[in-house]
Structures are given as structure tokens and as C-alpha cells.
Design a protein around this nucleic acid. Structure first.
Lengths: 205, 205
DNA sequence: TCAATAAATGAACAATCATTCATCTTATGA
DNA sequence: TCATAAGATGAATGATTGTTCATTTATTGA
């Protein structure tokens, strides 16, 4: 499934550094200005190398983007999975999943913009990213159902519901990141109470 | 608050048609190819007018985008508000809000891409769009709290939770729109049961 | 009917930018 | 040490595209 992007890996130590600098510069600029407002010349200038150097490693600008998306996609899944696997109940796993998503997002605010931008750069990659994320989620939810931990609701719909909650509350957190008075734990508390008891009171209808 | 985009409104009937054709062509192409892969020449060709005609009405390509975003933003809010106001309980309002969001989205799949793309074209407009949407939501939620219909949770967080749910489940629906066996009512049932009782069973932790 | 105004045209312009390539520099390993 | 390969350079290229403008056509109101 891992598609070959035709990227040339550097061998010498200096070259590895050059490659990493191009990655770093691209992530910074794609985040700050978006893919289309970032030129290859911008990236190489940020990386401190000549324009032509870019094409030693990447056959095109779009391939660099696809590569970076792949790296982020892998890293966030790994980050979350490692922390969730430490917990035992679905409730604790869910809480930890949400917390680690927010953590990763705050440490790597570039990820957000870069992943969403796939919708306008490579639609299939965008769709695949979320569908893969959802598929993994479904596995955990089905297991929790077997253990009688969660209600018997369509797991795929629930997966998208939970991704929607974390992504949009995450968006709000990014909006407010300038303000120093955001309390992430308090926000997670609200989400968890919502997941526990729902929105409506018993007499609501 | 309504910002002046410096758009020239047409006066004669023919000119009104030209203006509408440019709007229509732009929406079609922004949806199909994205903003950056759509040229002004593409838009005028789609509209069946000469390239220069574009600048009779819009001072630049970006202003046309901002104009279209404003139209969608207004239309979807109006569409939902009209239907929600017919309902009495918060439960019924919520269900109708979700349903009408999906309805509008399926009828106007362009809206989704065009609004999200704001993140890469005009960040402030993007942020303003969601914050305005959330602010409206908060008003309704606060009222429902007073009526003891919903739990006492932070209304702004809940607003982003609910927007996240509708947007991401909506995304899933758009992914699957090719398949003819999607049952929207069933998906809404899942969301509503989730909102009623939460995700976890009583004995979950 | 006929000036005055509005609408429309499309070739030309100027700027941008992804990519190439001939040349030079550095590293490697036998 | 030295031949070979890998890494790096940056000016040049060619294609694209947002915008302008001199000119032509259509509409309007008196």
C-alpha cells in the first residue's frame, strides 16, 4: 500500500542534513503560507541550499508534499497508539487518545494545516488518511462493544463522530492558542462528560 | 461587520446574467479543481465571456472567492435557521439542524470544499466563519440549559463538539455519495442516540 | 433619434515559478 | 593517492497566468 514516491535518500552525513533541512523548511513554509504560496525557491532558501539541490532528492514539489503528509500521518498515529495502549478500559483509552491528539497538535500545529490541505492537493490521499484513521478506530470500538463497555451503535459512524469532536475542538484550541488561559484538561473533562452521559437530560423529550 | 469587497453590481438584465454566469462557473471550478488550479481564464471560458469581462465586476480573483464564501456562509445559515425555528424542543431542533445541514451539503457539495479552502486563502475569514457559527450555536444551547433540556456543560465547547460531529459525519457522507446505499436517516438516528445517552454504558468505569 | 453610459472583447504585458543542466566541489574506498 | 561517484550550485528556460487597456458593441433615457 505504501506508494513509491521516487524520493532519493541521501547517503553521506552532510547530505542527510541537507535532506532534513529541506523537509524542515518545507514544513515551516507550508504551514505559514500554504502549499501554493510556497515556492521551491522559498524552500531551498529556508533550507540554506541552492534551488537545484531540491531536485537531487525530490522529483517534484508535489512529491515533497506527499512525503511530508506521510510522515505526519505515521507520526501522529504512532504517538497516539503508544499512549492509548498503556490504558486498559475503553474509557481510559478514549480519554488518553483525545489528550494525546491535543498534545501532538499543540506541539506540531503545522500538522493540522498540512493534512487538511490535502483536500486541495491530493484528494485520494486526504480521503485515505481519514478512512485509515477511522478503520483503526473501528477495531478498538468493536472490541469495546464485545466487552460491553460501550453502546451498540454503528462503529464507523461513531469513529467519524469521535474524529469530528477531536478535530473541531482541536481547531478551537488552535484558534485560542495565543491566549494563555486555555485549560486543556478542563476541555477534555467536558468532552468526557459528554461521552459518558450524552447531551440531553432524561426528560428532554 | 460586512466587509466591502469592491464588487461592481451589474444593472442591465444581460449584465446580471453575465455576473451570475461568472459566479456559477467559479463555484463549479473551485469545487472541481480548487482555487489555485482554477485560472481567471478558466472561469470566463466556463461562463462564456471574454477574460477582460471578469474585471468589470470583480477587482481580483481573491475577491471573487471571498464573495462566494460569503454567499455560501449566508445561505447555509439561513437554510438551517429556517428549519430549526419550526421545531420546539432542543432535541427536535438539534435533529432538524443536523438533518438540514446534511441536506444542504448533499445538494451543494461545492460548499464544503470552498469553505474549508478558506484556511489556505484567507485564514481570518475561515476563523470568522466557524466562530460565528459557534456563537449562534451557543445562544441556542444557553436557552436549552435554562429550560433544563440539556446538561450544564461549557456551551462553547459543546458548540464545537456538535459542529465537529456534523462536519465529519458529513465528510463521510460525501466520501460515500457514489454508493447508492447510504441511509441518511439511519445515520442521524445513530448521532441522536449518541447525543441522548452518550457513548459509554453505565458500568464502563 | 442620438448622445451618453454600460458592457464586452481579446490581444498584449509583466511577473512568477517549477524544472533543467552544465559545471564545480566534496567524499569514498581500494 | 587517485579515480569514481555523490553532492551541490545557480543561471537559464519555458510555460503559465493575473491583470490591463485600447477598442468595439449594446443599452438607455430624453
Amino acid at each position: 500500500m505504501k506508494l513509491d514516491l521516487n524520493i532519493k535518500k541521501p547517503t553521506t552525513r552532510n547530505a542527510k542534513n541537507t535532506f532534513a533541512e529541506i523537509e524542515r523548511g518545507a514544513i515551516k513554509l507550508f504551514y505559514e503560507r500554504g502549499y501554493h504560496n510556497t515556492t521551491v525557491a522559498n524552500i531551498t532558501a529556508e533550507a540554506g541550499v541552492a534551488a537545484g539541490t531540491f531536485y537531487l532528492y525530490f522529483p517534484s514539489k508535489i512529491v515533497l508534499y506527499q512525503h511530508i503528509l506521510g510522515v505526519f500521518s505515521y507520526n501522529i498515529r504512532k504517538y497516539i497508539a503508544e499512549r492509548v495502549s498503556e490504558k486498559n478500559t475503553r474509557y481510559e483509552k478514549e480519554r488518553e487518545g483525545i489528550r494525546s491528539f491535543f498534545e501532538y497538535m499543540i506541539e506540531n500545529p503545522e500538522m493540522y494545516n498540512i493534512i487538511w490541505e490535502a483536500l486541495y492537493i491530493d484528494y485520494n490521499l486526504f480521503r485515505q488518511y481519514y478512512q485509515t484513521f477511522a478503520d483503526r478506530y473501528v477495531v478498538g470500538l468493536e472490541e469495546a462493544k464485545k466487552n460491553d463497555e460501550i453502546r451498540d451503535l454503528d462503529s464507523e459512524v461513531i469513529a467519524y463522530i469521535l474524529m469530528g469532536i477531536t478535530n473541531f475542538v482541536g481547531l478551537k484550541i488552535l484558534f485560542d492558542l495565543g491566549n494563555n488561559n486555555i485549560d486543556i484538561e478542563k476541555i477534555i473533562d467536558v468532552i468526557m462528560e459528554f461521552l459518558e452521559k450524552g447531551l440531553f437530560k432524561e426528560n428532554a423529550h
